[in-house]
Design a protein around this nucleic acid. Structure first.
Length: 298
DNA sequence: AATCCGTGGTG
DNA sequence: TCACCAAGGAT
């Protein structure tokens, strides 16, 4: 009997994963019941496409420096980019700063509790809105991240990997997979993500340690290999992304603005590429032109 | 719908 | 070694 086959199997999946989570779930600081909604919010944005282990030290520094949305909103966006350190995708830092201003101007300086208000914040999409609603406010929205997608693909659908992009059918499956009880539903959101992060991993799943291997459809079917086209990795070497990253890193590490000639160090073999990336970064608000060079935004 | 946007660990 | 991948979002 697999996890998809009956309500009873679904209940067993919930109970087993929740018990496993109680036992071995990581003791992350933003899971502390005393953590503020702002702390939870920061952790969710920082964790978008970035492993938790790298997020934690930066999260601590941010909360110490900016304990509330108003504290961040009162500082400069450039400081947010600087404090972002090397988490990657630094526009998230900019969006965080922008969203702090929205919280001050429209939500009395608080992280909004309403799901639609969360979704309207810059840098907040379906995943983050649901996660903050559930983890910060106990509103049992269906949280669907890459971990949940993979766990459901395997345990319920019996496939090694989910589709390249989230489908409507997957969303329906995730909603149908939620426990009815409110507290269980919120715990399930965290627990199913954790199972995907620690055990039901993409490349080398630890099925021998998995608490639900005995009812996993993929396992019961003999762990069939992914059929279909190979999944496309992202190009990196020599891309604008790499060069932009180097430019922002140079500015992050400099207390003062840098001259245009200093920034050629980001990609010495092609100054025209640097030029194009600088223009893009200015457009994005990640840097700004100043007298004689460029700086992080003030 | 497909592409762009960083960074670093890992199998 | 190097392609893959990570608590996605915006356009």
């Amino acid at each position: 009997m697999s996890a998809a086959s009956s309500p009873a199997a679904s209940a067993q999946l919930h109970a087993t994963v929740l018990a496993w989570f109680e036992r071995v779930g990581r003791d992350l600081p933003w899971r502390d019941p005393g953590c503020s909604a702002w702390g939870v919010y920061l952790s969710e944005v920082m964790s978008q496409q970035t492993p938790v282990a790298r997020v934690q030290p930066v999260w601590e520094r941010w909360l110490e420096r900016w304990p509330t949305p108003a504290d961040l909103a009162a500082d400069s966006p450039g400081e947010a980019v600087r404090m972002w350190d090397r988490l990657g995708y630094p526009r998230r830092a900019l969006r965080l700063w922008e969203s702090a201003r929205v919280m001050v101007e429209q939500h009395e300086g608080e992280v909004p509790r309403d799901h639609d208000d969360l979704l309207a914040l810059p840098g907040v999409g379906p995943y983050t809105a649901a996660a903050v609603a559930s983890f910060a406010f106990g509103d049992p929205r269906t949280v669907v991240d890459t971990n949940v997608r993979r766990v459901l693909a395997r345990t319920v659908s019996g496939t090694q990997y989910p589709a390249p992009a989230l489908t409507a059918a997957e969303m329906r499956l995730a909603e149908a997979s939620m426990p009815a009880d409110r507290d269980d539903a919120n715990a399930w959101n965290a627990a199913s993500m954790e199972l995907g992060a620690l055990v039901c991993t993409a490349r080398a799943p630890r099925c021998e340690e998995c608490p639900v291997a005995h009812l996993c459809a993929w396992q019961l079917d003999g762990r069939p290999e992914h059929a279909g086209p190979p999944r496309r990795g992202q190009a990196w070497h020599g891309t604008d992304r790499q060069v932009r990253g180097r430019v922002v890193q140079l500015l992050r590490e400099s207390a003062d603005p840098l001259r245009r000639s200093d920034l050629d160090a980001a990609w010495p073999q092609d100054p025209a590429k640097v030029e194009r990336c600088l223009a893009g970064l200015v457009d994005d608000g990640l840097i700004e032109p100043v007298e004689g060079g460029f700086a992080l935004p003030r």
